[in-house]
Simulated assay, not measured.
Amino acid sequence: MNIVLITPSGPTSRTGNRIAATRWARILRRLGHRVGLAADYDGRPADLMVAVHAWRSAGPIADFKARHPARPLILQLSGTDIYDYLTSDPRPTLRSMELADRLVGLNDLAWRVVPTRLRTRLSVIHQSATSLPHGNQPSRRAVVVSVIGHLRDVKDPLRAAKAARLLPADSRIRVEQVGRAYTATWAAEATAEMAANPRYLWCDDVPAAAVRRLLARSHAMVISSLSEGGANVVSEAIVAGVPVLASRVDGNVGLLGGDYRGYFPVGDTGKLARLMRRIECEPAFVATLRQALRQRAPLFRPAREIAAWRRLLAGLTD
C-alpha cells in the first residue's frame, strides 16, 4: 500500500509523537509498504492514512476522508488527546476518532476514556524498545536519578528536582534531566533550580545516544507527568531494567502494571522523595522493581510491535 503518515510538527524532532511516527514508518516499510511522512495532507494519492494525534491532526484527517471516504484511516491516540482535549476541546478530537476506521492506544488502560461506541475500533500497540548496548550499569560516583522528557506543563518536569531537596544531607542522589524547555519560562525555572539545588543538573536537549547513556548509568528514572498516553521512555527503561518511579496516571499504569510498587500520587513531592531514598538505601526494594520490569519487558519487544501492526493492517480488509 501507499501510506501517508501524518504527525504534527513540534519544537524539536525528538518529540514523542515524531519519534513514534518515525519508528512506525520503518515498521510499515519493513512490512512492504511505501510510506511518506508529513505534517499536513496535500492531497497526494494514498491507499491509507496513519495519523498521530486526533486533535492536532484533525484537519488532515477530515481532508483525507472528504477526498477518499472509502479509504481506511488509522488514528493513534496521544496522551493529550484522551487525557486533555477529549474533555477540554472535544469536538475536533471526537470528530477525528469517529472518522478513523481503527484507533491505536499506547497503554492498556486507554480504553477507559474512549467513548463506548468506538471501543471496538481500538487496538493497543505498545511502543517497543531495544536493549542498551552494555545494559544498565549504574554510576558509582552518585545515585543517578534520571528525568528524560521535554520541559512542559503536562510533564511536571521539576518534580524530581524538588523531591531531591527533601533528601537528608547524607544522600548521594543526583537528579539529571535531559529535554528541551518548551518555553522560556521553563528554561528559566530549570536554570534557577540548578543554581539553588546542588543535587540537580539540567542538560537541555541532547542526542538520542546521550539519552541512552544517561539511562544506562541511572539507578532509577522518574516520570512525573500529569497525564501520559504511553511514553516510549518508559518502554526503554523497562527493557533496560532501570527502576521507574512514576506518577500514578493511566498512561503509566497501563505500561508498568497495576501492582507495580514504584508509583507516587501526581504532584506528591514527599512521596517521590521517599521512593528516591528507598532506591538509594533499600536493595530489596530495587530488586522488587527490577523483577516487575522483567515480567513486563516482553510486551515491548520490537517483533511484537511489528506483529501488532501486521495484524492491524490485515484487519482493515476483514
Rank of each mutant, 00 (worst) to 15 (best):
L289N: 04
H33S: 12
G36M: 05
L75Y: 01
D250L: 10
P265R: 09
V124L: 08
S225A: 10
S224V: 03
P11F: 10
L118R: 05
R140W: 01
P11Q: 14
S131T: 15
R67V: 06
A25N: 01
T15Q: 12
L215N: 00
V124G: 09
G10T: 08
A21F: 04
L5D: 00
N197I: 02
P243S: 03
E189I: 09
G135C: 04
A297G: 08
S235K: 10
F64Y: 15
A163E: 03
T183E: 06
V35D: 01
G36S: 13
L316Y: 10
E236M: 11
V222Q: 00
I82H: 03
S78I: 03
L256P: 00
I74T: 10
H126L: 08
F300D: 08
M221T: 05
H219Q: 05
A142K: 06
R296V: 10
A66N: 04
R199Q: 06
Y263K: 11
N197P: 01
L106H: 03
A51C: 10
D204R: 15
G270V: 13
G10V: 00
A184R: 15
V249A: 05
S235N: 08
C281M: 08
I173H: 02
A161Q: 07
V145S: 06
G10D: 12
M221D: 03
Y83S: 14
R274F: 00
A169F: 02
G10N: 11
P115E: 06
R18V: 12
P45T: 08
T130N: 14
K65D: 04
L256K: 03
R152L: 11
G59R: 15
G179V: 05
A169R: 15
A314L: 07
N107E: 13
E228Q: 11
L94N: 04
T269H: 00
G16L: 07
G36N: 04
S9T: 08
G105Y: 10
P168Y: 06
R112Y: 03
V178Y: 02
D153L: 11
L5F: 03
V266E: 13
A169S: 13
L272T: 12
R304F: 02
Q295S: 10
G267L: 09
T269K: 00
V145R: 04
W111E: 14
